[in-house]
Design a protein around this nucleic acid. Structure first.
Lengths: 188, 188
DNA sequence: ACCTGAACACCGTTCAAGT
DNA sequence: ACCTGAACACCGTTCAAGT
């Protein structure tokens, strides 16, 4: 029974941090709070993360890994809905990943995690046309599902849409509408 | 020469706050910093805003007003690009408006400001089909430009795209691609 | 190496008091 | 009404020290 914490304080801090963020929001996760939950001094986290931003970056990277999984395990047509579902089910982590709290430039492993998740999406477009066309198509698809996720989370769609029965069905409508549009173009 | 500040401390705080946010980011705007810039005690702002969130909400509302202006004064086809341009030119204010820092539900004037801005966008779709169809089309368009703005700000598009010559031309490509798609559907 | 306690310069917010 | 200074309970981060 060592006087130290345990084998993997880093992992414990990430787990604790993720939990706080999901339950109380990003602003409420302090380094000191993560330390408390991991039962170490307010100071121990600095052995594993140089600053609060890096702790947040670690949690965001874990978020990208989970998003990538969700995308990979969804069949082609359902990928857009899987993306939106991830955002709606993990709103605070999604905001951490994309809310500008952390700058990817400062955290290379975060950028790599994000790129891997995006690859799951781009790969589905490789079949269509030139590389440049695939890039544009993937960017458009990502933009659509990403913007839709954000706007739904922020509550920007009003009564007429919500009355239709909640966020998810509305999201499906929007995605279907655009899917048909793109299909029309392709076959033309 | 009164011992008080001046006629409109509220406006002065909003102006100072906007400036700090644009220059240093949201995290760096404290109530105390806004007070300092307006040359009042750290406590005076609480006469005009119940808490920090409300100060931020006031600044965000001003941001929505400006975005609405930018959209209204842009001609139909250029509106999407105007939206992206606003985001790229005012990244920190854009993040404040849409980054989840403030919950619109807690600040009715903010929601109203946001709705007015959205109306500038929805109005352009009124001509097309039923009300429900217009709603879905507007939501799709908003999602696209909004997601594209966010992803560009976060730096998620990689070398091949950026090499083409920067964010704005890439944005134009993506928007054009989808515009053609939707045009194809309409005429089919 | 990994952890701790004390210390510093900040916060947001509340309160009692001044004009 | 509008403003001020003191006070409280937090922060992130640094430092000197313990095992």
């Amino acid at each position: 029974m060592t006087t130290y914490h345990h084998g993997n304080l880093r992992a414990a801090l990430l787990r604790a941090g993720m939990k706080v963020i999901e339950k109380k929001g990003i602003r409420r996760l302090s380094v000191r709070e993560a330390a408390r939950r991991a039962r170490v001094s307010h100071n121990a986290p600095y052995r594993h993360f140089p600053d609060r931003q890096s702790l947040l970056a670690g949690i965001a990277a874990e978020g990208f890994a989970r998003l990538g999984e969700a995308l990979k395990t969804s069949s082609g047509k359902a990928m857009g809905e899987a993306y939106v579902r991830f955002a709606l089910e993990h709103p605070e982590v999604f905001r951490l990943m994309f809310g500008g709290t952390i700058r990817m430039g400062d955290h290379p492993p975060l950028r790599e995690a994000a790129d891997r998740a995006y690859q799951s999406l781009v790969d589905r477009f490789r079949a269509h046309g030139s590389e440049a066309e695939a890039n544009v198509a993937a960017a458009a698809a990502w933009s659509l599902v990403h913007g839709l996720s954000h706007l739904l989370l922020d509550g920007h769609f009003q009564a007429p849409q919500r009355d239709a029965g909640g966020a998810a069905p509305f999201a499906r409508q929007v995605l279907e509408a655009v899917r048909y549009s793109i299909g029309a173009q392709r076959s033309a």
